[in-house]
Design a protein around this nucleic acid. Structure first.
Length: 512
RNA sequence: CGGGCGGUGGCGCAGUGGUAGCGCACGCGGUUUGGGACCGUGAGGUCGGGGGUUCGAAUCCCCCUCGCCCGACCA
C-alpha cells in the first residue's frame, strides 16, 4: 500500500483495514520481537489519555497506586491450582542470570548461572501481590486494602494483533483485600461500574455488563464480571474484567487478619484490569474508511489548524498574529478536565495534504485559516466525521469558534457514543429458535466471512457442554450473562432444555 | 503450536542463473498553496538471516526467522 493510496475499505477486508489504519494513523508498529509492538508517540498519547482519566477514577474510589516486581518466583504461581492451570501455557520463564561466549562465539546462557528457582515474567500479579498483602494485612483495621498498579505483563500468545493481542501489553491491575465476601463483592461491582462509565463517557464505547460463564471466567476467580463492546464487524471485544477472587488467593498466600472479635480470619480479594487493548477497541468502534476517528476525550489533539498560506515568513507571521487571540482565548479552557489541545500545522505541505494527514489521525476538528478568512475575521472548520448531519465545512467567526469549541467537542463526543450505541443495538437481537440462532451467526457471504448477525440474546441451560458445542460449531461463545433483563423462562437455544432458572437471556457472540 | 501465503531502499512492488530496478516517500534549489502540487537535481539496498549447489545466486536446494490469513489458545 503506497502512502498515497487510501486504506482497504472495511467492507472489503476488515482485518486489513484495521492493520493499515494503525499504520497510517501512526499508532504503533511491529517490533523486531515477534508478537510485540512498538507503541508510537501518537498511539501512546491515546493510551496516556486513557491512563490519566482512568487513574483519576481509580483514585477517586479510594485506591492507591503501587508497583510490584516484573518477576514472579515459579513457586508463587504454583500456589493457586486453577490460576497456574490457566496461565501455565503462556508464561515466559527466566532461567539464567548471565550470558557467556559459546564455542562458536555466540552468546549463550552461562550454565553456571542457572537460577535455583526460575522466575516467571508476570502474566498477571495476583501471586506476587498476594505475598506482599499477606504481610500488609494483620488486622481488620488494615481493611479494605485498595491497591492499583500500572504495569506491563507478558502472555506468550501464539497469534497476535496490534493492540488487541500482543505478547507484552500495558494495563492497570487493581488488587484489593476485604474482610468478607460481601465487601469484596461490592468492590468487584464498583470497579466494573467504573469501567462501564469510563468506557462510555471517555471512550464513547457503549458496553454490555454482565457475568462471565464458568468457562470464560478468570483462572482462580470465584466469578468474573466484564464489560463487552461490539466492534464494527459485529464481533465482541472484552474490554475490561473485574474478578471476585473469593478466598482462593487469600488461602494460598495466607492473607489473614484478626477480626474485631479476636478471631483469625482469611480475607477475600478482588482484582480488575483494563489494557492497551482498549486502544484497539477504540479504533474498531469509531473509525472509518478514511482512517482513525477519535473521541475528543482521548484525542491527543482536539483541533488542528491548517493555514492556507504559511510558506513565507511574513505569511507565517500573519497567521500567527491572527491566531493569537484564539489561542489566548483557549488557554486554560478544559474539555473533560484536560486542557483543550490545539496544533497549528505550519509544515510546508499543501493544505490538502494536511487535511488528509490529520483526517487519517482522527483529529476531531480541522480548522482552515486563509487570506479570505483573515480579512473577514473568520475561519473554516470541519469535523472529522459529521455523524450523519450536514456534510462539509462551515465558516464561523474566529471568536465565536473559540467560544463554542467546548460545546462542539461535547456534542461530537456524545454523537460518537450515540452512533456506536445505535450500531450495537441494531445488531443485538433476541433469538429463541435454534435454526434462527444458527442462521444469525452464519456468514452471509464467503467473501466476507466476518459479517454475521452480531450479538444474540438467547436462552441458555447453563451447561458448559452446550457452550462448547456452540463454540465448536459456530465460534460463538457466551460473552456474558447480563445483569439486567427479565428472567427467561423459555428453552436453551442450543439443547432445548429449560434455560437456567432466574437467568435472563445470555449474550452470545463471536469474539476477539 | 499446525496449515497456507509472503519478506527486494522508509512504504508499495517488478525482477526465475549473468552489471539490482520502478512508483511513492526523503534531501537540496525554484515555482506553488481554499482537499493528496510541479520542474530540476540528489541521496538511499551486502535482495529477512545462515548454510549449500554453481565459474557466477535476489533467482535453485536446506535450515532458521519475522509478518499476514485460517485453525487450536487467549485480555
Amino acid at each position: 500500500m503506497s502512502s498515497k493510496d487510501a486504506i482497504t475499505p472495511r467492507e472489503q477486508d476488515y482485518s486489513a483495514w484495521y492493520n493499515e489504519l494503525i499504520e497510517v494513523a501512526d499508532l504503533a508498529e511491529h517490533s523486531a520481537v515477534r508478537g510485540c509492538m512498538v507503541i508510537k508517540p501518537y498511539g501512546y498519547a491515546i493510551w496516556e489519555a486513557i491512563q490519566r482519566q482512568l487513574d483519576d477514577r481509580i483514585k477517586a474510589t479510594g485506591h492507591l497506586n503501587a508497583y510490584f516486581p516484573l518477576f514472579i518466583p515459579k513457586s508463587f504461581l504454583q500456589k493457586e491450582a486453577a490460576h497456574v492451570e490457566g496461565f501455565a501455557m503462556e508464561c515466559a520463564v527466566v532461567t539464567h542470570s548471565r550470558l557467556k561466549k559459546g564455542p562458536d562465539g555466540q552468546l549463550v546462557p552461562d550454565p553456571e548461572s542457572a537460577l535455583a528457582e526460575e522466575l516467571i515474567v508476570r502474566p498477571t500479579s495476583e501471586t506476587i501481590i498476594g505475598e506482599s498483602f499477606a504481610r500488609w494485612v494483620q488486622s481488620y483495621r488494615d481493611l479494605p486494602l485498595l491497591i492499583n498498579q500500572w504495569a506491563n505483563v507478558v502472555r506468550w500468545e501464539m497469534r497476535t494483533r496490534l493492540f488487541l493481542r500482543t505478547m507484552e501489553f500495558l494495563w492497570q491491575e487493581g488488587h484489593t483485600v476485604h474482610a468478607d465476601f460481601d465487601d469484596a463483592e461490592a468492590e468487584t461491582s464498583r470497579m466494573l461500574e467504573v469501567y462501564r462509565e469510563f468506557a462510555e463517557s471517555v471512550l464513547a464505547m457503549p458496553v454490555y455488563v454482565g457475568k462471565k460463564t464458568e468457562r470464560e471466567k478468570f483462572a482462580g476467580a470465584e466469578h468474573t464480571y466484564c464489560i463487552e463492546a461490539m466492534m464494527q464487524d459485529r464481533k465482541a471485544l472484552q474490554a475490561g474484567t473485574s474478578h471476585h477472587l473469593g478466598q482462593n488467593f487469600a488461602r494460598a498466600f495466607k492473607i489473614e487478619y484478626l477480626s474485631k472479635d479476636q478471631k483469625q480470619q482469611t480475607a477475600y480479594t478482588t482484582s480488575w484490569g483494563v489494557s492497551t487493548r482498549l486502544v484497539g477497541g477504540l479504533v474498531m468502534t469509531h473509525s472509518d474508511d478514511k482512517g482513525l476517528v477519535l473521541p475528543p476525550a482521548v484525542a491527543p489533539i482536539h483541533v488542528v489548524v491548517i493555514p492556507i498560506r504559511c510558506g513565507k515568513p511574513e505569511e507565517r507571521a500573519e497567521v500567527e498574529a491572527y491566531l493569537a487571540p484564539l489561542l489566548k482565548r483557549l488557554e486554560g479552557v478544559q474539555f473533560k478536565g484536560r486542557p483543550v489541545r490545539v496544533h497549528v500545522d505550519m509544515s510546508d505541505q499543501r493544505p490538502g495534504a494536511k487535511h488528509f494527514t490529520w483526517e487519517k489521525k482522527g483529529v476531531p476538528v480541522r480548522v482552515e485559516v486563509g487570506p479570505r478568512d483573515m480579512k473577514e475575521g473568520n475561519l473554516v472548520y470541519a469535523l472529522r466525521t459529521t455523524l450523519g448531519t450536514e456534510e462539509g465545512k462551515k465558516t464561523i467567526g474566529r471568536d465565536a469558534f473559540g467560544e463554542g469549541l467546548v460545546a462542539l467537542l461535547e456534542d461530537y463526543q456524545r454523537g460518537l457514543l450515540e452512533r456506536a450505541r445505535a450500531f450495537r443495538d441494531a445488531h443485538t437481537r433476541d433469538v429463541d429458535d435454534k435454526a434462527a440462532f444458527e442462521a444469525f451467526f452464519t456468514p452471509k457471504s464467503e467473501e466476507r466471512p466476518e459479517i454475521h448477525g452480531g450479538f444474540a440474546r438467547a436462552g441458555w441451560c447453563g451447561e458448559g457442554e452446550c457452550e462448547a458445542q456452540v463454540k465448536e460449531r459456530h465460534k460463538v461463545t457466551v460473552r456474558c450473562i447480563p445483569f439486567t433483563g427479565e428472567p427467561f423462562t423459555g428453552a436453551c437455544v442450543w439443547c432445548g432444555k429449560p434455560a437456567r432458572a432466574g437467568q435472563p437471556r445470555v449474550l452470545w457472540a463471536k469474539a476477539y
